[in-house]
Amino acid sequence: MRKKDKTQKPTMKQKLGDLLELPADLLADVPHMTLNDNQEIYIENYKGIIEYDEHMVRLNSKGYTIRITGRGLAIYSITDEEIGIRGTILCIEFVA
């Protein structure tokens, strides 16, 4: 179960999810990330690209910005809801 962040008030959805013991990513439209080694990251439920070059990708998502830094980053697939990035990933930051 997800630990509740004291600074963030739990939403109705989260409360319902906790009650029914459902995995968090199933209910909420929070970003869901899959990382393969340090070579590939796949993010669902992102909101848009803020910045992209081969050293850094900044993505908008609900509540915060995801900043991925690395070498030779390329977007291998992009749609409205999902984005896949390949390259050598060095750092993933969540900037509020």
Binding site: G48, A74, I75, S77
Partner: peptide, 15 residues
């Protein structure tokens, strides 16, 4: 971003 909003599928993007 506009492409994705208009459902234009893009892939293998390199800067």
């Amino acid at each position: 971003n506009v492409c994705t909003k208009r459902n234009i599928y893009l892939w293998d993007i390199t800067r």
